[in-house]
């Protein structure tokens, strides 16, 4: 069909980035939430939370917040649901272009934006006493994991957005993500939870991702309680990201490119 999928993808990426540029309020909100969390958890709850190995709580918290920012399918879900509901997806499908190139372009643009958000979050972290205790290599490894996680979240979000197909419904689902993030070791070590809940929390991918980032950056880590993904957090994170991408990239691409039956 089309011979220029790269051009099509680049145009789709430009569309997403241009929209973001027009939406400073949205960017402020995306960044504002973790900043508020740094303040609330770092300074309100933090002093009451014991970190294993007498580590500093804010050093424990900030890597978790990187994961909260990265593993967030909501923005791409809402934006895709909006595109589907308001006819943009139909318009693109009716053009003589590579249909599959569009979600790839959008995911790439979202990744660029995501790295920017992570860097700004890192500045906030530095301001409240978080530090990288390893070296440039492991730090880039942590960034790599966060980008992979963010890429996976984008594809999950785009797929769900296509399935939901309505912006208002998608926005209502947004509240479900935060409890999912809470049920992990991001904010508190899981050791104090009841056994059944602790198992859930330890196997929650949010826990794996934050354990990997903490390990790579030399920040305090939570006890693994013997959960396999936490024993090998870096491998576990890469496995989670790979599985999610292997499932959701084809699902989303096929769904986007299909002609309705």
């Amino acid at each position: 069909m089309s011979t220029l999928p790269l051009t099509d993808g680049a145009a789709a990426a430009t569309r997403i980035l241009t929209k973001l540029r027009h939406d400073p309020a949205g960017i402020a909100l995306t960044l504002g939430a973790p900043v508020v969390l740094v303040l609330v958890f770092g300074f309100v709850f933090g002093p009451a939370i014991a970190v294993p190995g007498s580590g500093d709580y804010r050093e424990y918290l900030v890597p978790g917040l990187f994961v909260v920012i990265a593993f967030n399918p909501i923005p791409s879900m809402v934006s895709m649901a909006r595109d589907a509901g308001r006819g943009s997806v139909d318009r693109f499908r009716s053009l003589p272009i590579s249909r599959a190139a569009i979600p790839f372009g959008q995911a790439a643009a979202t990744a660029v934006y995501g790295v920017l958000c992570l860097l700004l979050m890192a500045l906030c972290g530095l301001a409240v006493g978080w530090r990288i205790h390893t070296g440039i290599g492991p730090a880039l490894g942590a960034l790599g994991i966060l980008v992979a996680v963010q890429f996976a979240a984008t594809w999950i979000g785009m797929y769900l957005g296509l399935v939901i197909g309505r912006e208002d419904t998608a926005s209502q689902l947004a509240v479900l993500v935060f409890p999912f993030a809470m049920l992990s070791n991001i904010f508190v070590p899981t050791a104090g939870m009841p056994a059944w809940l602790r198992t859930l929390a330890d196997w929650n991918p949010f826990s794996t991702f934050s354990a990997a980032v903490r390990t790579l950056l030399g920040n305090p880590t939570a006890p693994t309680n013997g959960a396999l993904p936490l024993e090998y957090p870096v491998l576990g994170s890469l496995a989670w990201a790979a599985v999610l991408l292997l499932v959701f990239v084809p699902l989303c691409t096929v769904r986007y490119a299909r002609t309705e039956r």
């Binding site: 220029l4 051009t7 680049a10 430009t14 939406d23 006819g87 943009s88 053009l95 003589p96």
Partner: peptide, 27 residues
């Protein structure tokens, strides 16, 4: 060329950007 039932233009872009991006998609 298709104009569907909803105005499938992007609200959060300018009119010019809407047309430019479509133009780039159309090579």
């Amino acid at each position: 060329g298709l104009a569907g039932q909803h105005a499938a233009v992007d609200d959060d872009l300018t009119g010019r950007e809407n047309l430019q991006i479509l133009g780039r998609m159309l090579h």
